[in-house]
Amino acid sequence: MPIKAIRQTAIGRNGVGAFILQCKRLDFHYCDWAGSSRGMNQFLTHLLPILARTSPSIEIHVSPRPSHHPVIRGHYINGREKAICVRNLEMQQVLKKAELLRDASGEKLRRVKGGRAVGSLNEGVRGVWSPMHGAEKKEEMFGR
């Protein structure tokens, strides 16, 4: 019986080769009239062009949303979206929120536990402890 093969796909590791920024689109919604949009409107006039220039891989949509609080909404490659209401925030605070959305991965926020902050698919160079092989070591050590 010849050797068969099991078809499986290679697993992607973002950042090992190419790095794909996970935020693919940012929507900015503002209101021309309401006071809660003051910081957002300043942000759109002064800081958004700089933000757009520094992160060209994000598609940016700006659209009015009259009589509502201003909102930044991020769309991510995994299909999720995150929205942050930026009512009554200053221009720089809005920028912080936009950068937060830009740098997010789109995953749900969850606590990263101590030892598992970095995961790897490679085998450990040290190997895995085996209960089968203790006796030989012991014999070697004690010269039995």
Partner: peptide
């Protein structure tokens, strides 16, 4: 090619499927 395709992880030893390894 290196950045997008070969950077992916594939454990080739898991691709094998033996039927009669002793005879092989």
């Amino acid at each position: 090619f290196t950045q997008h395709i070969m950077s992916r992880h594939l454990d080739v030893s898991k691709v094998f499927n033996f039927r009669q390894p002793s005879r092989d």
